[in-house]
Simulated scan of single mutants.
Amino acid sequence: MKKMNRREFLALTGAAVVALSLAGCDDEPYAPPAPPAPPAPTTSKETELVAAINKVWKEKYDAKAVVHEQLTLNQDAQEAIKIQGGIFENAKEPVHTLTTDDVKKLVGIQELKISLEKKYDLGGAAGISEPTGEDGNLEISLTFEYSCEDAVIQKFVNKIMDYSLSREAEFISIYCPVVQGKTYMIATVFWNKTA
């Protein structure tokens, strides 16, 4: 697979966003959207992780840093974070240099985001680094090994809260990719759109 530099990454993702925005401008008659996919089953790891996150979230609520006392596990956004986690699972490495094929997969996240934004406002996420690279190649990494320890969860929640509007969050989607025998955690938060 060909490695890609930052310019190619931005060109591909920019072209994908333009293509998605133009997709709604055709002369074809309106077709109703496909029925929603059935909810993803939850695992015990996801359930344990939500309980640990909610312990920290309650502390933030008591400090008036968030609006809702608890987050509800809602896997509506899991498909998007599963695409990201899948890149690491397929590459079989927790630190990965993006390829052209990876970027094509990431375009699917934009499509899901557009769909989700019809119903929800999206907040912050944690578990995957922003793309970086000094040699022209973009590298991403899984940033949190799975853990329900208070100190780890505090850092995980703080990462989610880096996006200031995350204080409005009422739902959380979680995905736990397994790479090289280790389980990692990825999450994103969101809330119902207000009219």
Rank of each mutant, 00 (worst) to 15 (best):
N74M: 01
S129G: 09
V103G: 00
E117D: 09
F88H: 14
Q84L: 07
L112G: 03
D102G: 06
K113M: 09
T143N: 06
L122E: 03
A126C: 04
D76P: 02
P94R: 06
K105W: 11
G86Y: 05
G127Q: 01
S141E: 06
H68G: 03
V67P: 01
E145G: 04
A80C: 12
A80V: 07
T97N: 14
E89D: 11
S129Q: 10
Q70T: 12
I114F: 09
Q70M: 05
Y61I: 05
S141K: 13
I87T: 12
E130L: 14
S147W: 04
E69K: 04
V95H: 07
D62N: 13
E117G: 04
T99M: 11
E79S: 14
G85T: 12
A125C: 12
K60G: 03
Q75I: 02
Y146G: 07
L116Y: 11
K105R: 15
T100Y: 09
G85Y: 05
D76H: 10
S141I: 00
D76L: 03
L138M: 14
T132H: 12
E139T: 13
L138N: 03
Y61H: 14
E134M: 14
I109V: 15
D76I: 02
H96S: 08
E130Y: 14
A65Y: 07
L106V: 14
V95T: 15
P131L: 04
I83C: 12
C148D: 08
K60P: 02
A63K: 15
A63L: 11
L98K: 06
N90E: 15
G127P: 01
T143R: 11
Y120K: 00
E149W: 13
L71M: 08
A77K: 01
I114N: 10
K60H: 14
T143S: 14
G127C: 05
L112A: 13
C148I: 15
L142N: 06
K119C: 03
E89V: 15
F144Q: 04
Q78F: 10
A91D: 02
L106N: 06
I128G: 00
Q75W: 04
Q84H: 14
G86V: 07
H68A: 01
G123V: 00
E139K: 00
F88Y: 15
A80M: 10
L122K: 05
P94C: 11
E139V: 07
Q84G: 10
T100R: 14
S115L: 10
K82V: 08
Q84Y: 03
F144L: 10
P131Y: 01
Y61G: 03
G123F: 02
D135M: 06
D101N: 15
E139W: 00
K64L: 07
K82L: 13
E79Y: 11
E130G: 11
H96L: 09
L138D: 00
Q70K: 13
A91V: 05
G136D: 04
T143Q: 11
A126N: 00
F144E: 07
G108T: 11
L73N: 00
A80D: 08
F88L: 09
G85N: 10
T72V: 10
S129P: 06
K104M: 13
D102N: 14
H96Q: 08
Q78G: 11
D121T: 13
G123R: 00
L116R: 05
Q75L: 08
A126Q: 03
G85I: 07
C148L: 07
G108V: 09
A65C: 12
T99L: 13
Q75T: 10
D101T: 15
D121K: 13
D76A: 12
S115D: 13
V107E: 12
A80L: 11
I128R: 02
K92C: 07
N90F: 06
